[in-house]
Amino acid sequence: MRLFGVAGWKNAGKTGLMERLVTEITGRGLSVSTVKHAHHAFDVDHPGRDSHRHRQAGATEVLVASGHRWALMHELRNRAEPPLEMLLAKLSPVDLVLVEGYKRERHPKIEAWRQAAGHALIAPEDPTIRAVASDVVLPDLPVPRFDLDDTGAIADFILSEVGL
């Protein structure tokens, strides 16, 4: 499975870049799936719905399906967060999986960086960062630098890196 990440600190532009990359790469005829890491509790379900009631009753997994989509929700019930590799194994085959977050994992990544966010760059200390997409010119980077809004060039770079 071809895998490439978008990493960076909060408010660096990761989600917007991911969204633009998915649009750009699928527009080129390739299939893309995404994995998004969340550092907080989240829910894709709503109180009062049958599936939510199943989970509240103690179900470990609840699968909801319709003619348009299906979703599998898995409750960890105080067990450890599963590793990225385990989650990737659950995905159907595609040309490319883009991963948002998981900045400490060892897959190749591009770092999204905005000057106004006020965080230090990850790239100089992390060999898994293969390029930086930023809103300002950054001299003396150990990796290529792209304008954060140059989605086409960033997509070209990622596809070249993964051999597509």
Rank of each mutant, 00 (worst) to 15 (best):
H40F: 03
A41P: 08
A41W: 09
F42N: 03
F42E: 02
V44H: 06
D45G: 08
D45K: 03
P47V: 10
P47F: 08
P47W: 09
P47A: 15
D50Y: 07
D50C: 08
S51H: 07
H52P: 00
H52S: 13
R53D: 07
R53G: 02
Q56F: 00
A57R: 07
A57Y: 05
G58Q: 08
A59N: 11
A59L: 12
A59M: 12
T60R: 14
E61L: 10
E61N: 13
E61H: 14
V62H: 05
L63C: 10
L63M: 13
L63G: 03
V64I: 15
V64T: 13
A65I: 06
S66C: 08
G67T: 11
G67H: 10
H68G: 00
R69P: 01
W70D: 08
W70G: 10
A71R: 00
A71I: 10
L72D: 01
M73W: 03
M73F: 15
M73R: 09
H74W: 04
H74L: 03
H74F: 01
H74C: 06
H74N: 05
E75A: 13
E75P: 02
L76S: 12
L76T: 12
R77N: 14
R77W: 11
N78A: 15
N78F: 13
R79G: 09
A80E: 13
A80V: 11
E81P: 11
P82I: 02
P83K: 09
P83Y: 05
P83S: 08
P83N: 07
L84M: 00
